[in-house]
Amino acid sequence: MMAIESDKVTADVVEVSEFPHIAQRYRIFAVPKVVINESLEFEGARPEAAFVAMVESVAGRQDEETPQG
């Protein structure tokens, strides 16, 4: 859904049992597991607002970085 709403977002749903090397690389012991930009990760579902807040914490917000005027 997030990738449908923002051109900044790429969302992959990865069926990890087919790709043991991916499971190993990301140390997946429980699903669902979410990894954002290879940096922030968590296991289990999150409420929408919390998930979006995490995405924002990784990606930053435009109007904070663009100088005004």
Partner: peptide, 16 residues
């Protein structure tokens, strides 16, 4: 919030 993201984000959701 999503419309105003500054940097690209790659979200990977691992499932079985």
């Amino acid at each position: 919030t999503l419309a105003k993201l500054a940097q690209p984000v790659h979200i990977k959701v691992f499932v079985t």
